[in-house]
Design a binder for these strands. Sequence first.
DNA 1: TGATATACTGTTACCAGTAACGTAAAATTT
DNA 2: AAATTTTACGTTACTGGTAACAGTATATCA
Lengths: 345, 345
Amino acid sequence: MPTIYDVAKKAGVSSMTVSRVINGKRDVKPETREKVLKAIEEIGYVPNSLARSFVLQKTKTIGLVITDITNPFFTTLARGVEDTAMKNQFSVIFCNTDEDPEKELLYLEVLARKRIDGVILASASGKRAPLKSLLIKNIPTVLIDREIEGLDDLDVVKGDSVQGAYLLTKHLISLGHRRIGIIVGNRNISTAEDRVEGYKRALAESGIPEDESLVKFSQYSREGGYNSTKELLSLKNRPTAIFGGNNFIAIGALVAIREFELKVPDDIALVSFDDIESLSQVYPFLTVVTQPAYSMGVIAAELLIRRIEGRDKIEERRKVILQPELIVRESAGEKLAEGVRGEGR
Amino acid sequence: MPTIYDVAKKAGVSSMTVSRVINGKRDVKPETREKVLKAIEEIGYVPNSLARSFVLQKTKTIGLVITDITNPFFTTLARGVEDTAMKNQFSVIFCNTDEDPEKELLYLEVLARKRIDGVILASASGKRAPLKSLLIKNIPTVLIDREIEGLDDLDVVKGDSVQGAYLLTKHLISLGHRRIGIIVGNRNISTAEDRVEGYKRALAESGIPEDESLVKFSQYSREGGYNSTKELLSLKNRPTAIFGGNNFIAIGALVAIREFELKVPDDIALVSFDDIESLSQVYPFLTVVTQPAYSMGVIAAELLIRRIEGRDKIEERRKVILQPELIVRESAGEKLAEGVRGEGR
DNA sequence: TGATATACTGTTACCAGTAACGTAAAATTT
DNA sequence: AAATTTTACGTTACTGGTAACAGTATATCA
């Protein structure tokens, strides 16, 4: 593969002149520029950003570490990150951790070795933070969706899980539900705790006593939703509504509910944190709280890139909290509820 | 950031010895290895793969160029690619072209500059192939999902679109439909042509005359599906069934159908090429032909990596064609159809 | 016991760019 | 016309690894 020296020789100039032409620097006579451009064309020269990155100590690449690109929330978020990166001439390396802290660590190590300029991280590690090692190595990092305890100096872009869960729970309560099961992810993950907190706040506000058997810290996955829902449905005093802590949990819950030969919303209500766009467009059924995933990705990427480019040198740590939105559809039995509420229950 | 020389000095050895330890080469005395490992630990050394890639001329990175990660088909495919890459210690840079050949070209240029080891490409360019320039530069490439005319020497992994469309059309015909509208992507894209071909083959086999007004080369997007469906529904002689050329088109079609205040499947049948997993789990309604997207990603990545590692030196170009599967659900009016067929229509 | 093989470690050169500095020629100022 | 500035280049050194080769010390062999 031809190098900058091949071009230089062909054009009868030094490699520095070629370098200047490629990088659009001034200090090159127009005729010289033409000569060089022609040589590049003829030779079919493609600059080697590897070498460039190596001397400049910047790679124009960021890492995106999420749990699963297959989750529509992260898909959309990833799209926001990529679009923004692209706009700023950055590339994105993407990594799926599957909620496995070890895999996360492995990926971060790889990314650090590649000397990426920064990381956007939806961490699976939560409280235990072995990844500290990495972050200490001074890679600019923006946490997304989830916070990490003990790393309070990092930028964060996330949704307001407490408020979202509060809204959703309130909605269920307003429809007459008093026994509401909630299923969230692993206790280590900040969103899991936050969503339970919002849920409990709504209960408290309505004077409904907490029942720990209705609160399931499980996994943010279909299996998690499925298993925990079966547990909830097997309770002597079965809940009348289930709050799926994310979209995958809600899907798993639905499968379990179907297995119990129950109907949503007639026999049991089901709501979800995070929408599933492709579903809602076809079948606007699930009542959900939705987060601006795309914006989240965009904002995180912008923040990170600004940090990388050093435009934010003086600035303090940033924490961006985006507000969720309640979208009422049918899965909580809204129509039925009209009547229930009408009876002044 | 510490370098290999810092480690070497600390351990009292040469940089080569450190290099050997890092890369697990033999020829290092156990005690020396220990010394080096200790120094690495103490200094917090992270190898610089940038420098390594630079001298070794390989980056352990592949590029994944698709049209839109937001499309569940590509999401799943991407996951297959990433998992396989990860397993082989490769990273993945991902790129969304939005079916824009210029963006595609831009990305390929960036990837070439980064000296990635290979590309997996779902091209938006189709017949015009400006990307030839890139491929000529000898980057191992595997085409995925779509072929490119004139580039017959590249490996391909794709679904059998002709067969898939044939199955789906046959199914509609078996349910009594004779006027079937089909909407696919841009004519440049191989899957668009293939799907129309399969559709026509099924029609011909059943002695149904072609009607070009029922064949829409549009865009593989919701808007494409939406607009073309409106056109189809505005025909004097409206089709009784619509074949969405991919999942996004089907979603757009559904929106348009709803706007016309038509019911699926009572007033009109709708089928789709490519499933939408999160939808079908919640609401198994759409009758579809589905492709093994994950496997497609895995196979493409394996093929590419084998090529990169040179294990396939002698081997000819590979073409892997995966078979689609018809999943009959409700959106083509299957139950109703029983009756229709019963009447021997 | 000397010759030869083996195990281990170091030296040198190179990968493809760019920053920083240097310099000659042209342009401008005095 | 000489001095000074500006323009347009070139030279050198360096980025952090590794391949290839070169030792040296120790083990094995004839």
